[in-house]
Amino acid sequence: MMAMYARYESTDTVTTCIEKVAMVSSNDSWLPWEMSPNFTGRGYWDVDDAGGLGGNGVWGSYMMGLYTASGAVSNNRCIVRAELVASNSSAPPCLPGYSCVGWWDVDSGGSRGTNGSSGTYMMAFSILSQ
């Protein structure tokens, strides 16, 4: 079981926001927690043998990690929506108009997306920036 949560705060009260989200896939049981000086590790999970594809272009059959980078709200590059989309298809269920950050196999146990979708094959993580 895995869940993702995000806290919403009005830009009137904060000075920084998440500007970038990256996913990294691996064929190893280990992922670097700090992907680069600008990205911070937020979590990771096992994707089983069918694997997943991260934004790094690497197909991995073991682990998937989620990373974020922050910046000033004044840059107007803040992420305004993030969606998990589930599917019964082998094609990644990326949303039109969104940047598809990565996707992975959810196995037969199934999944439910933030948009109400459900499926037993793939899950995709998509973001929409300002």
Rank of each mutant, 00 (worst) to 15 (best):
M1Y: 09
M2I: 15
A3E: 14
M4F: 11
Y5W: 15
Y5F: 15
Y8I: 14
Y8E: 13
E9Q: 11
S10G: 11
D12Q: 04
V14I: 13
V14L: 06
V14Y: 08
E19Y: 11
K20A: 15
K20R: 15
V24L: 07
S25F: 03
S26L: 00
S26D: 02
N27Q: 00
D28E: 06
S29H: 11
P32C: 06
W33H: 12
W33D: 12
W33T: 13
M35T: 10
S36I: 03
S36W: 02
S36Q: 04
S36M: 06
P37S: 12
F39M: 11
T40C: 09
Y44I: 11
D46N: 10
D46I: 09
D49R: 15
G51D: 00
L53D: 02
N56M: 05
G57L: 07
G57M: 05
V58H: 10
W59G: 04
W59A: 06
W59F: 07
W59I: 04
G60C: 07
M63L: 12
G65T: 05
L66P: 07
Y67K: 10
T68S: 11
T68I: 13
S70N: 13
V73S: 03
N75V: 05
N75L: 07
R77Y: 09
R77D: 12
V80Q: 09
V80M: 09
R81C: 10
A82Y: 02
E83W: 04
L84A: 06
V85D: 06
A86R: 03
S87K: 00
S89Q: 04
S89M: 00
S90F: 07
A91G: 13
P92V: 04
P92D: 05
C94A: 14
G97Q: 06
S99A: 07
G102L: 10
G102M: 11
W103V: 12
W104I: 08
D105E: 10
D105V: 03
D107L: 10
G109F: 03
G110I: 00
S111I: 05
R112Q: 08
T114R: 14
N115G: 01
S117L: 07
S117W: 09
S118K: 11
T120W: 04
Y121T: 12
Y121V: 13
M122D: 00
M122F: 01
A124Y: 02
F125P: 03
S129N: 07
Q130V: 09
Q130C: 10
